[in-house]
Design a protein around this nucleic acid. Structure first.
Lengths: 335, 335
DNA sequence: CTGAAAGCGCTAACAG
DNA sequence: CTGTTAGCGCTTTCAG
């Protein structure tokens, strides 16, 4: 790579002259500026990013820590983050926590050495289960901002972007109730997550009519290593009266449809199904799944905006903001 | 963030003493080393990454350009890349080309200013369609290595990681032939990609018995904006004799199963289906899809290894390597 | 209008 | 055993 130094030497001028000329300083003569720019172009000169970072003490880079990139929600959120970051002139360094506390903490510490200006992350499942959030606090104390999205913690004092999981789930359930469904069940494989608990609570809220307690609710909890199809099939057999399902994660809804069909049930005639998922997933069943759209791309975009807002107001003390992104039910064939 | 300077000042020693002490140089006395390390620990000192990069002229960072993160194959490949990079002590800066030539070229130029030591990428769809590869060449000419995976170009002279798409598809088709299937069709939504063409060729090869020409093959090409379910449904109706399907992309197979079921066909009794997809997708249909496993994680891992090998042999001239990662058919219920 | 010099944080050759 | 100095590539103040 060509440097200012080399250009300066070849042109018999000083380094600072070259620098100023390239930055269109009016301290430099027209003729010189032209000569400098031509040579720079000829050699395809690009200012060295690392040197600029050292000088300015900012990297224009965001550290992003994703629990699980194979989850479409996070993949889409990452997509939104990258898109907005690019627009704003930032790069992203991506790490995967793989839902583990150790990797999350490691990534955080690794990148807090000046590699990035701040973080955007969703808390790992293990971290939420442990309730251990000191690693976030210590980064914040060092002056690095963190924006949390989706999986957040009240115990951490920073900007956040979430959807109203409780309300989204309540709306979805109410939608089925309104359609006359009497025995609505809830299927979840994420009951250890904050969002999973909120979605369950929203379901219970809307579905509580005539039921004495939470215990009366029909809820299927699927474990990490369970065969979902088998679990759901058994659930149908044990509860033949079910005529509606709300699924909390992004694949159970689809599996519930396929399994119902394979048992000879008609969807949505015999059973109506709604799930937290996206359009591609919706298309992977016949009939297509009615979904609750979480707008992950939008979430990512807001996360970037909140972070950059904080980065650019270096000195002022800003109150932490929690941005709630709206959800919508996308009606399709399964409900 | 604490710097060497601050530590030095507080300890009344020189900056270089502190630096050497922290790096366990034997030039420094035991007592001093201890004092320095204690204070460093106390202040949670971390060497500034940017300064190190400037000094060493390496960033220990890899630029990764992904065409579409919502495609599970690429998401998994990214996962594999991140995993191996972390093991090797590298970070990754991720960009999305969104299948466009412009974004791909832009990312390449943006990051080639010293932000990264080299690139790992899969060529964008538009770039492959255009056949325009100069932007890669010019990066290579600047001395930055590029490792291409999956979507590669013979015209670019660098390391590559691919699967043998032709052979994988041939094997899958042969598998159905061996099971006695007579009228096997091919469904693709990626016929403009190099891998799409190879998979189609592999299918034709294995399926050519008794057919006079390529034209006799039953091939359904799904456009970007088509409704896959509708297209496939119509395809079944137009070709009632079909008893086997090989799907080239990672969702058509699942859709083919669901659509078949909805038309009252028995899978795999009436029709056998195999697709390029992964385990999660396989689980989204009843019966579960038999898949061709492309080992995307493995591909990502090899890409990182090839890149780092080249980075670490700065001076020697290495012949470009093309690594072929094996595939396997994971038999499930649909075949 | 141009150049010299300092400094961002760090390492390492060289002096003492 | 410790310190001084130069330099990585760049910007910017200050002199000329």
């Amino acid at each position: 790579m060509v440097t200012l130094k080399q250009l300066a030497k070849e042109l018999n001028v000083s380094i600072s002259t070259v620098s100023k000329a390239l930055n269109d300083s009016n301290e430099i003569g027209k003729h010189t500026t032209t000569r400098v720019k031509e040579l720079a172009k000829y050699y395809n000169y690009k200012p060295n990013k690392v040197a600029l970072s050292l000088k300015s003490n900012t990297t224009k880079t965001i550290g992003v820590i994703i629990p699980n990139i194979l989850n479409r929600f996070f993949a889409k959120a990452l997509f939104g983050i990258e898109k907005e970051a690019t627009i704003q002139g930032y790069n992203i360094i991506t790490c995967m926590s793989n839902e583990t506390y150790v990797k999350e903490k490691g990534s955080l510490q690794l990148l807090s050495n000046g590699s990035v200006d701040g973080f955007i992350l969703a808390v790992a499942e293990e971290t939420q289960a442990k309730g251990e959030f000191n690693h976030f606090e210590s980064i914040l104390r060092e002056g690095m901002p963190i924006v949390m999205f989706d999986r957040v913690s009240k115990l951490v004092n920073g900007d956040k972007v979430i959807i109203d999981d409780f309300e989204a789930s309540r709306k979805a359930t109410a939608n089925l109730v309104k359609k006359g469904r009497k025995y609505i069940a809830f299927i979840t494989s994420i009951d250890d997550l904050s969002v999973g608990k909120l979605r369950e609570a929203g379901f219970v809220k809307a579905n509580s009519k005539g039921l004495d307690s939470h215990d009366d609710q029909k809820i299927l909890r699927i474990g990490k290593n369970d065969d979902s199809q088998e679990q759901i099939r058994q659930f149908y057999k044990d509860n033949p009266d079910i005529d509606g399902i709300v699924s909390a994660d992004n694949i159970s809804g689809t599996i519930a449809i396929n399994t119902a069909i394979s048992l000879g049930l008609k969807v949505p005639k015999d059973i109506s199904i709604i799930g937290f998922a996206d359009q591609i997933i919706s298309n992977l069943s016949t009939p297509k799944l009615t979904t609750i759209n979480q707008n992950p791309e939008e979430i990512g975009k807001h996360a970037v905006q909140l972070l950059i807002r904080r980065l650019q107001s270096k000195d002022e003390i800003l109150e932490p903001i929690t941005k709630v992104v709206g959800t919508s039910i996308i009606e399709s064939e399964s409900s």
